[in-house]
Computed example of a mutant assay.
Amino acid sequence: MFQRTIIVTAFAGLAATTAMAQTAVPFALDWKFEGPAAPYFVAIDKGYFADKGLEVEITEGAGSLDAIPKIATGAFPVGFADINSVIKFLDQNPGAPVTGIMMIYDKPPFAVIGRKSLGITDDPKSLEGKVLGAPPPDGAWAQFPIFAAENELDMSSITVEPVGFPTREPMLAEGNVASITGFSFTSYLNAARLGVPEDDLVTLLMSDHGVDLYGNAIIVNTDYAAENPDVIKGFLEAVAMGWKDAIADPSAAVESLMERNPAADAELETRRLQLSIDANVATEAAMAGFGLIDEDRMASAVEQIKLTYEFTNEPDVASYFTEDYLPEAGFPLE
């Protein structure tokens, strides 16, 4: 996939006689420069990173799992990735220097998007006997086994077609598959943009059908964080301010996105951002303290992951997420 890297230098204020040096912080996104990425560009354009003495470099990703090895190897200090995939990665790579530090998608956008005209309804059982298109690196596909187990789907009756991210929605639009896995705010709108009537689209949000997991979070290389705690704290505060502004005015936030992706459809990306805010980000729990997690819910999520994944090592919930770099009450979004 074509990958762009946007480097934006945010100039810090000058001291009385000398300029303050900035710290470069490369940030690995999970996906392309679309609506839900806008808050991070808002944080650049409004100087929130600069105020913390940070120079931010944002790089596109190739899926919800993409950033994890980038962070674990130290290629990037911070990234954005599916926390459930982080949990599995840490089980397979004990002691790897990566953990979650700020929950963004309190309610995950993992979904199956299908077409009514091809037999898909709001009942997960309608997937049986049909063809499902799923990109192997897709975060939603990674959680599909839990969705299938919770809804007692007969997987032997579902034909799973491995597809690439660029061909996923086109295959659905062309009727080559009856449904696809993806993020609700991405695949739904992409399919509609390709000409699928919206009244023919069905969104099966996994969290509405028994999947009780968290979604994507800011993750960090723990070695870097231990050596640069103030950098990480400042980075998270700037991110929170970017999201706060985006929630207050999604259209204005997308203007920052359009500067980096002028080929995008501003109206479409504003809608995509709004969908992510409404369904995934601005939940009741997040509005009470953005960035935090509930320990009992995380423990429950680990138990649910066990339904379809056999841990090699005893799960250690404390290693998957830390609130050490967040305010005690989280960040305010209002």
Rank of each mutant, 00 (worst) to 15 (best):
R115H: 08
M258W: 07
F185S: 14
T23R: 03
P94T: 12
S179I: 02
M103C: 09
L201T: 11
D154T: 03
N221L: 05
F80C: 01
S117T: 10
D30I: 08
T222V: 03
I232L: 13
D106G: 10
P197D: 05
A19C: 13
V112S: 02
K88Q: 15
D245V: 04
S187K: 02
A282D: 10
M241I: 00
E237N: 12
G234F: 03
I120C: 11
G289S: 00
I6H: 08
R272L: 02
V220Y: 11
F49W: 07
P315F: 12
A38C: 00
D230R: 06
P166N: 05
T270Q: 04
G95Q: 02
E255Q: 11
G289A: 07
N176M: 12
L54N: 01
V8G: 12
F165A: 14
L292P: 01
R271K: 15
N313R: 05
E323F: 02
N176K: 15
F11N: 01
N228D: 11
N261L: 04
N84C: 03
I58F: 01
D106N: 14
I83T: 11
E310G: 14
V163W: 04
D212Q: 09
A19D: 12
I6M: 03
A253T: 03
G210H: 09
V302I: 15
P327F: 05
F110P: 01
L132V: 08
W141S: 13
F33Q: 02
K116N: 04
K116S: 08
A37W: 01
D296M: 05
T99G: 03
S156I: 02
L307Q: 13
D66W: 13
D30K: 11
A282K: 04
G47H: 00
A173T: 02
T59I: 13
P124Y: 08
L268R: 12
L292H: 14
T181R: 07
I180V: 15
L268N: 10
A240W: 00
F290A: 06
A279K: 13
I87W: 07
G289Y: 01
D45E: 15
F235M: 12
L65P: 00
A266I: 13
V202H: 10
N190P: 07
W141C: 02
T312Y: 04
E150A: 10
V239Y: 07
Q92W: 01
V239T: 11
L118V: 04
D249H: 01
S187P: 05
T322Q: 04
P26G: 06
K306Y: 07
D278H: 08
E150K: 15
G291F: 07
L172E: 06
A62P: 03
Q92P: 00
Y48M: 07
F331M: 10
F27D: 02
V42C: 09
I180C: 12
T121A: 05
A75N: 13
V211E: 08
P109Y: 03
Q304V: 08
L127W: 14
K306M: 14
T270A: 00
L132P: 01
R297C: 03
A16H: 09
A111R: 09
F11I: 05
E314K: 13
I104M: 11
E198P: 03
